[in-house]
Design a protein around this nucleic acid. Structure first.
Lengths: 317, 317
DNA sequence: ATGAAAGCGCTAACAA
DNA sequence: TTGTTAGCGCTTTCAT
């Protein structure tokens, strides 16, 4: 219709291609008139780059994950990518990854708790670039981003001791969760360095109900703690509600802290002092690093790209 | 390597193709050994069907949306589709849809509040099948699924009156939101039919903060209501906290109800009586209907596929 | 039931 | 800067 070749049209849509401004405008105008849009599927087939980035996440809902994955998706879009969502059903990360690989995703961001070495092998084999977010794994071709968990534990310990608390307790996330273990490590070692009594460790899970149960355990504990640091906010809110059900008053009887700063932490019923995840920084860094690796087609250095959390003072301490 | 043609391999992976079981097994075994996976991108190019379904949602976080979109993604995956996530930045639904269309998505599920006619036109033009979920629109080629909002209002009205409440109030969602308007319609008309005084209408938004503000308005209102029906749970929780900040006790001073049954509604601090969204039913129906239309390539009937919500009795009434 | 061949819409290498 | 050509990996006639 315009008497130009297919290549010229292709070039008009490629920002880096060498084409005269005149022709580009001509093509773009005609495209707008006809409602033409390049077919990203066909582009992917030839260029061997789909523009797709998959996000794998656990199928249980969690306000923190949801916030994070939405921010990730937005940032990926902003940088010209498209997001494939892979909720992991019945722990079947491998299946979800195979399906993503069928779609030739360029990159994969993993935010699920249960990782498998097969998944990593698959990605390696098919050249899918990998990022882990708030997860840990050794010896894989991936970079890791997230909040600095040890530091978060340290921040909590210092804050609570500064506020005059002496006998502290930690309510952990799921057994084997590295995020929880690192927070505990930073917390307990800092308390030791400060010369405070060693903190009580209460094994729990990343859920509200586990917090409720942990509260009973705390109330029945011989060594009554005066402040409780919880592995995340949901857990902390469960602890608060559990404590209150037995008549305790927060922060007079017990100070409570969490990690994440989910929106509900600001609600008056909880008014929870917490360490905020630097979501924006984490998301920007994750996506930038991943996209760079995709574009340069280079391996990950296995780097830990941690960002510092921010203590948010509210009324629960 | 196997001495079979490309077509045979293709047929081995197509469940409906005519191929001997022997050859199929041969191919599949070899594929497993080599780690071969069909390229969905190439398939999409030739078959004109990408297998991709996009989900468009608002970029603000909301536990209800998150639950729903995750369930949608899981169900789509289960049926062999792959999900493209399109969070809408700065209300730019049109842009997000153009980008989805570039990827030749077969279908689009819209769960965003601000719809544009241009978006619908685009989908129509490119043959993208459409579903709206808990949204309304007239005269478009789409089916609509969701909770029966009028019925939810009716359920709330009947329940509250049965519990002996007389002067009721409704705290609305965003102005112009059809979900909120329908809930109000069902609520107020049922109260009228029951011969109760006409309810107070308080204009708010679907947010916790709006609930907080609505609480002040309620406290300052000349006609003191004894029960408050809120357009959703988040709003109801805001109202509860706002009321309590001024010393009111729930449910003694005010009964409060919501809609959605988000996980937080069950937390002891709120223990909110609410009308549960039948998420599973809605999701199954939405995906089934959409996939059917995609497979048969047939138009939507503009049907309203509503599901009944379930009243969950807790302690806030 | 199988194979040969065409072609989906695009990009990239090469030539002009 | 532009056009020509080949080919990405698959599915789908059409023969056989």
């Amino acid at each position: 219709m315009l008497g130009v070749s297919q290549s010229t049209v292709s070039r008009a849509f490629s920002p880096t291609a060498s084409i005269s401004e005149k022709k580009r405008k001509m093509v773009m105008d005609a495209a707008a008139k006809l409602g033409y849009t390049p077919n990203a599927i066909a582009r992917g087939l030839i260029s061997n780059r789909s523009g797709l980035v998959a996000i794998a996440l656990d199928s249980e809902s969690n306000p923190m994950y949801d916030l994070q994955s939405r921010a990730l998706a937005l940032e990926i879009q902003r940088r010209g990518g498209q997001v494939v969502l892979c909720p992991i059903d019945k722990d079947d990360l491998d299946l979800a990854i195979s399906r993503a690989i069928e779609y030739q995703v360029d990159g994969l961001i993993i935010a699920t708790s249960r990782l498998t070495s097969r998944a990593f092998a698959q990605c390696e084999k098919f050249g899918v670039h990998l990022s882990l977010i708030n997860r840990y794994a050794e010896g894989i071709n991936a970079n890791i981003t997230g909040i600095d968990n040890q530091l978060a534990g340290k921040q909590a310990a210092e804050y609570l001791s500064r506020k005059g608390h002496r006998q502290l307790a930690y309510v952990s996330g799921d057994a084997g969760s590295m995020t929880s273990e690192e927070r505990w490590r930073g917390f307990s070692s800092t308390l030791q360095a400060l010369g405070l009594p060693s903190p009580i460790f209460i094994q729990a899970k990343y859920s509200f109900e586990a917090g409720l149960a942990a509260a009973s355990e705390i109330l029945g504990h011989g060594m009554k703690p005066d402040a409780i640091f919880c592995a995340n906010d949901i857990l902390a809110m469960g602890v608060m509600d559990g404590l209150r059900q037995k008549g305790a008053v927060i922060p007079q009887d017990y100070a409570v802290m969490g990690v994440d700063n989910i929106p509900m932490a600001a609600w008056p019923s909880y008014n929870l002092t917490t360490i905020a995840q630097p979501i924006d920084k984490i998301v920007k860094r994750t996506v930038e690093d991943l996209m760079n690796r995709i574009n340069a087609n280079q391996d990950a250095e296995g780097a830990y790209l941690f960002e510092e959390g921010t203590l948010i003072e509210r009324g629960s301490v």
